[in-house]
């Protein structure tokens, strides 16, 4: 079946699509942008807030803001930069509001959605161990100051280059890199006990010596 209509819209670059949205309020072009970016934005928000459901909501809000801010979009700017910035700002606001709320649901329910990831065929103890590791990471990230967390999430999980992150955050590349190294240092301290345990297990596997007491 010929689907010529989609190829015309879907072959637009992000920037062209956004200009269409800005100039003509073109919902088709906007839908294309949503489809292309929704998952990435949702993941960013989930990593930043530590809560999958909140991540989903914030992603939707990001697109609502994107649409609302369409007139301020300049064509020479990359759409991705524009969109990452909107989403990050929402995440920052979210954290501030969450910290003012007395013991929010976010803290208690944040672990939801982690279990869905483990493969079904894994034995239960592996599933539990994996979930604990994931939970430790989620928790450690939540304790990083947000300008470290943002750099770490954008580089490590979203795969942005340091140059792109610098553009999104509006700071020099050197600053981004030094924040990244600081973030890794802090995480090494926060995850210290977990890391040591892993290292010990790895070593005992390697040397194949019987465990003490076994």
């Amino acid at each position: 079946m010929p689907v010529s209509f989609s190829s015309s819209l879907f072959s637009l670059t992000d920037e062209e699509a956004m200009v269409r949205v800005r100039e003509q309020d073109d919902p088709g072009a906007f839908a294309v942008l949503v489809e292309r970016w929704e998952v990435r934005i949702q993941r960013l928000c989930t990593r930043m807030t530590g809560d999958p459901r909140r991540g989903e909501e914030l992603a939707q809000e990001s697109f609502a803001r994107l649409f609302a801010a369409r007139k301020t979009y300049r064509q020479d700017a990359r759409l991705s930069t524009f969109l990452w910035r909107i989403a990050l700002n929402l995440c920052y606001d979210e954290r501030r509001q969450a910290s003012r709320r007395p013991q929010s649901l976010l803290e208690r329910e944040g672990g939801r959605g982690l279990e869905a990831v483990a493969a079904a065929e894994d034995p239960p103890d592996v599933v539990v161990a994996e979930r604990e590791r994931a939970e430790a990471v989620r928790e450690a990230l939540g304790r990083l100051p947000e300008h470290y967390r943002a750099v770490l999430v954008l580089r490590h999980y979203q795969g942005l280059k340091f140059r792109e992150i610098a553009e999104v955050l509006g700071v020099p590349q050197g600053t981004v890199k030094s924040r990244m190294s600081e973030a890794l240092d802090r995480l090494a301290r926060l995850l210290g006990p977990v890391l040591k345990e892993e290292a010990r297990e790895a070593q005992s596997e390697r040397s194949e010596t019987p465990r003490p007491g076994a």
């Binding site: 949702q42 994931a134 430790a136 990471v137 190294s181 090494a188 890391l195 290292a199």
Partner: peptide, 19 residues
């Protein structure tokens, strides 16, 4: 090595492929 261990650990927090 310490940083590499952190990076490996970060990968333990996976999210579903498509929400």
């Amino acid at each position: 090595d310490r940083w590499r261990a952190v990076m490996t650990e970060l990968d333990a927090w996976r999210l579903p492929r498509v929400p």
